[in-house]
Amino acid sequence: MVSFLRFLINGISLGSVYAIIALGYTMVYGIAKMLNFAHGDVIMVGAYIAFCAISYLSLPPVLAVLCAMAVCTALGVIIEGLAYRPLRQSASLAVLITAIGVSYFLQNTALLIWSSNPKIFPSAFSFGTIKLFDGNLVISSETILTIIANIVIMIALTLFTGRTKMGKAMRAVSEDKGAAELMGINVNRTISLTFAIGSALAAIAGVLLCSAYPTLQPTTGSMPGIKAFTAAVFGGIGSIPGAMIGGLLLGVIEILGKAYISTELGDALVFAVLIVVLLFKPAGLLGKPVREKV
């Protein structure tokens, strides 16, 4: 029972990271209708920036995270402006391939700057542990921090998209770009803002991911990126609470699957659950079914 609780908490922690990444995916998809495959690599860049800030500049961890967020935000906006904006009217596959190109670009740039040798991410966020059940259940501070960060981000984003003017503009653009433009919304700026927020979240996710799994490589971001994308689809792509639920469920399924079924098959299980869910709910858990007009 205690071990089950431990796995569950680990799962929620991993799921929180997925959820934060998936939020970036889902927001970008909702507004630009594109699969941003480079998102996973923005996570990796964020983690590297934080790593450098802590290890080489010996900045305090909070400042390092802010630093990573700033760099990733700039990176996200630049990528959107240079690579995606010229393709906004093109076929979705063209944008997809460009996103893949950007992903290769980021990975190989990281490879040149930081080399392929794995870096050990400093444990800057361990402030001790909480022991429960006579020390049988140990929860690390990173785990708690990840879960808290997830909740805070979730609340902040819900408030932002629901209450603020920019957030409402974002929802309007994702619903109907043309109509939003007619209402005086600057579509380009809104899309840039979405990329900025998504990339800043990716930076946070990168730091949290590497605090839990401290080996950092240029390819670190790609698998979590794919899984977070799966999580976003799982919850219904384009929906913010959906990304949250999808991420958490995916994390829990992965950890429990690895613990109780087979370490090798953890990933396969995640994808199998996704397929089953999509067969019964083709638009994801919280996705709106698209009605076809004839």
Partner: peptide, 25 residues
């Protein structure tokens, strides 16, 4: 093939990964 668009894409991705993972076992 019951799914459409991006959902179909993600499921084919999922199957590709499942095949690889199962083969690893």
């Amino acid at each position: 093939l019951r799914l459409r668009g991006d959902y179909l894409a993600i499921v084919t991705l999922a199957f590709g990964e499942i095949i690889r993972n199962v083969l690893n076992c």
